[in-house]
C-alpha cells in the first residue's frame, strides 16, 4: 500500500537517508510559517483570535498559576499536529504524522519536557522526591513513562493512518463523491487528535508541576500534632506513674 510505505527519497551528505516523511514535514513547516506571515500582514486579528483560542483550551486543561512558560511548547505542538494531520487532503501529500517515527518524536518531546518543567519548577531533589513519593511506586512510575510515550505515539499514528487508509480504499472502489465524506471524517478526527494530544500533554505537565501545598501543610501539621500528642501521653503516663 502506498499509504503505509515510506521510501527513502535522497541521501543527505552521503550517509543520512532522508525518507519522504521528512520532506513532507519540511513542506508542512514551510506552509505553517508562510501562513502565519501572510496572516500577520493581512489579518492580525485572526491570529490573535487563534492564539486566544489555544490559550483558553490550555487554561481549561491546566491547573497552574502562570500559564506563560507552557504556551510556546504546547501551542506549537497543537498547531503542528493540527496542520500535519489535515495536510493529507492536498493531493500528492502525505501526513507527516502517518509515519510512526514522527509521532514517537512528538511523544518523546512531550514526555521529556514534563520532567524538564517539573525540575525547573520544583528543583531536582524535590521533584524526584515527589516523583517517587512512596518509594515502592518508583518502578511502576518508570514503566508508566514508557507506556505513556507508547500510547501517545501509537494513538496519533493509528488514527491518522487509519483515516488515510480508509480514504485510499474508498477512493480505489468509488472515486466519485464518497471520498469527500471520508475526508471530512478524517479532518474531524485529525482535529480531535491534535486537541487530545495537546490536552494530555497539558495534563501531564500540570500534574508534574503542581505543588500540593494543602497536602504538604496537612502532613506537617499532622506530624507535629502526633508528636505533641505522643509527648503529652508520655508526660501523663509518667506523672501517673509518679503519683502512684
Amino acid at each position: 500500500m502506498e499509504v503505509i510505505e515510506h521510501p527513502i527519497v535522497f541521501t543527505l551528505f552521503g550517509f543520512i537517508p532522508v525518507r519522504d516523511t521528512v520532506v513532507y514535514t519540511w513542506i508542512t513547516m514551510a506552509g505553517i510559517i508562510a501562513l502565519v506571515l501572510i496572516l500577520k500582514l493581512i489579518k492580525p486579528n485572526l491570529l490573535e483570535y487563534l492564539l486566544e483560542m489555544i490559550i483558553s483550551i490550555l487554561d481549561d486543561a491546566m491547573d497552574v498559576d502562570d500559564l506563560h512558560p507552557y504556551i510556546p511548547l504546547l501551542g506549537s505542538l497543537m498547531i503542528f499536529t493540527l496542520v500535519s494531520n489535515s495536510v493529507s487532503v492536498i493531493p500528492r501529500m502525505k501526513s507527516p504524522t502517518s509515519d510512526i517515527n514522527t509521532t514517537i518524536a512528538l511523544a518523546l518531546i512531550v514526555v521529556l519536557s514534563v520532567h524538564v518543567y517539573g525540575i525547573l519548577k520544583k528543583g531536582a531533589w524535590k521533584y524526584l522526591k515527589d516523583f517517587a513519593s512512596p518509594i515502592f511506586m518508583f518502578p511502576l512510575e518508570i514503566i508508566g513513562q514508557f507506556s505513556r510515550t507508547l500510547s501517545l505515539s501509537i494513538r496519533l499514528f493509528g488514527n491518522i493512518v487509519s483515516g488515510d487508509l480508509i480514504v485510499a480504499i474508498v477512493f480505489s472502489i468509488i472515486p466519485y463523491f464518497l471520498p469527500i465524506a471520508m475526508t471530512a471524517i478524517t479532518l474531524i478526527s485529525g482535529l480531535l487528535q491534535a486537541f487530545v494530544l495537546t490536552t494530555l500533554a497539558a495534563l501531564f505537565i500540570s500534574s508534574a508541576v503542581e505543588i500540593n501545598e494543602e497536602d504538604a501543610k496537612m502532613k506537617a501539621e499532622g506530624k507535629k500534632r502526633s508528636l505533641k500528642d505522643f509527648f503529652i501521653k508520655k508526660f501523663r503516663k509518667e506523672t501517673a506513674n509518679g503519683e502512684s
Binding site: G158, N159, S162, V196, T199, L200, L203
Partner: peptide, 14 residues
Amino acid sequence: MLIALALLETASIY
C-alpha cells in the same frame, strides 16, 4: 468526555 473517548479509542486503534 473527549479525553476519555480518545483514551478508550486507543484500544481499538491497537
